[in-house]
Design a protein around this nucleic acid. Structure first.
Lengths: 337, 337
DNA sequence: TGTTCTACGTGTAGCGTTCTACATTTTTGC
DNA sequence: GCAAAAATGTAGAACGCTACACGTAGAACA
């Protein structure tokens, strides 16, 4: 066992800065935190030394007493480009702050959240968490928390940022109706039940009923497993009473639907119209031209971050921010002549 | 200013575990690290107390003395699903270890890397870094480092994990030739020059020459800006001497190429064949059916993580792992009859 | 002139771990 | 049965920072 690791260049500490600047450690710390009681002269001296020595405070050490200036983001998955939009929003909110975001990815947030708390994140943003309010409250008792995509506000001791998923679904159905479709099936998610999915299904049902199409309400569900998704879509599109439109709970599923439909020789939108959700960049591709519901991920990320920092700074009552979704129409739902 | 944050439930510390188990703090620490010199009896007692109190060691505190058991991953971008494959590999390598991965996203790794070092990451994996060897060595002097997608091994004081990008490009060209194409253009990246891109361009040139097509070598470059990419592709496909095949440096660009070609009414592969790189999940879609070079992101991630942990454990000489790419043929390059 | 403020600095006790050095007990070898 | 060696446990000093409690000096006030 050659346990002799290569000599690492040692870090500059606050003590060295203090001695270089000829002041106390406490003074340097004050400058670092712009705490009260530092003269301009002292600040300048200290900052010069920090610059000169290229000093950077060690987050772990700070965390032991105060903050680490680190926010944790928990994504359910990395494959969906929608999350990149949220991330962009987070970053632009962080631009002029001293905070840094670190991401983790995990379907079941649980163990990842614990790991982030162990690592002293000052606050957490959970994206599309599959957790009960009880569990989320339990987390919120230990660290400032904001959830993106969670609709149960009952007694929530955390903030939420959502798009109006129920409205989004209604818009999708309404748009399809306006383009002359009647047999509209919703393609939804089976496995982890989430409040987001519930809202979208509810919106679908309500709008179908309102449009006088209550009789043809049909929700088909699949887990997030590629094989299953394809199988179920294929079965749906091959069935005798195939729908003339599908509303998919996320763009990714809509792309799968386009793929299966194309495979079966169906043309879009003539034989089957398709609507997705999230309005990801891939919707624009000519090979997709997917009509989708835009929920502005960037705004979601930005607002979530804003709320989180407020909460870290001491706010204790909950706030709930809602974005209004809108239809972005493309060829996948063009009017059937 | 209501600076009264809600009372957070305080953490269980090692001291409480020690007193609950009736042993010293040092003993608990030993159990935690499975250090030498703990009897089975003591270990059992301590573990029972840890379980009972639901104790979790605080990473910041550990970091101050030893390790934080956190690895940092730096992605250049979140939009490319290829990175999800790498991430999957990292995770499966981490499965039976006590390490956790935290991700950051940044085109220019620099400031993010500093932030990660400040946060006491035990080691870093940089994915597709746009950095010189000098800069990377500078980082490697301060923290164990592995680069995925970096071909300059000259005097590298870090490990690298690569697919053979030069071979990958050759395979792409060879495959196109076999299917009867002659005017093969490469669509490459202009802005941040990277060793990966260099290798792919080199492979393209070499294979074109070898195939006797040296005369029609043509590399078109665009930055990673959507507008520009589309403009340049459109110009290329509308030009008088349009190529009959395009080799794109990444799947994402290939999808754009398919989009533009579709837009222009060109059919694939009859009018124009297209090859991508990465073999991302989206290649399978019937609307794409994109032939692509597979570089098994999962293997890259797994090996990188393995090497990183070895390095953290003391290895000081550099290792360089190479994966052999392969062509995955789909309809976008089917033989033109 | 004395007294009270206010502004500016400093000393130092932790924060929750790890780890070296050491004390004590048990085992081993002869 | 005794010394030496091995095994097991503990004390306590860091690690780099924050923040509380003070000290000091000059300004403002009466």
């Amino acid at each position: 066992m050659t346990n002799k690791s290569p000599a690492r260049t040692p870090r500059i500490t606050i003590r060295e800065v203090a001695s270089d600047a000829g002041v106390s450690v406490a003074a340097v710390s004050k400058v670092l935190r712009d705490a009260y009681g530092v003269s301009e002269a002292l600040r300048a001296k200290v900052q010069a030394s920090m610059e000169k020595l290229n000093y950077r405070p060690l987050a772990s050490a700070r965390g032991l007493r105060g903050r680490t200036y680190t926010l944790g983001l928990v994504f359910p998955d990395l494959r969906n480009p929608f999350f990149a939009d949220i991330f962009a929003g987070v970053n632009s909110a962080l631009e002029r702050t001293r905070y840094q975001a670190m991401q983790g990815v995990s379907v079941s947030a649980s163990s990842l959240v614990e790991a982030m708390i162990d690592r002293q994140m000052d606050g957490l943003v959970l994206i599309g968490p599959n957790e009960t309010n009880e569990r989320l409250n339990d987390i919120a008792d230990r660290v400032p928390l904001v959830a993106i995509g969670h609709h149960d506000l009952d007694d929530a001791r955390f903030d939420t940022v959502n798009n109006d998923d129920q409205l989004g679904a209604r818009l999708a159905v309404r748009h399809l109706c306006q383009n002359g479709h009647k047999k509209i099936t919703m393609f939804s998610l089976s496995a982890p039940v989430s409040t987001v999915i519930n809202q979208r299904e509810l919106g679908y049902r309500l709008e179908m009923t309102e449009q006088g199409l209550g009789g043809s309400i049909n929700i088909v569900r699949a887990p997030q497993v590629l094989r299953e998704v394809q199988l179920i879509l294929r079965r749906l599109l091959e069935s005798k009473d195939r729908p003339d439109a599908i509303f998919c709970w996320t763009d990714l599923m809509a792309f799968e639907a386009i793929s299966v439909a194309t495979d079966l020789g169906l043309s879009i939108p003539e034989d089957i119209a398709i609507v997705g959700y999230d309005n990801t960049v891939f919707c624009e591709f000519s090979q997709n031209r997917l009509t989708s519901i835009d929920q502005s991920g960037e705004v979601l990320g930005l607002q979530a971050t804003r709320l989180l920092i407020e909460r870290i700074d001491g706010r204790s009552h909950s706030e709930h921010f809602v974005v209004t979704p809108r239809v972005v129409a493309r060829a996948s739902t063009a009017k059937v002549s």
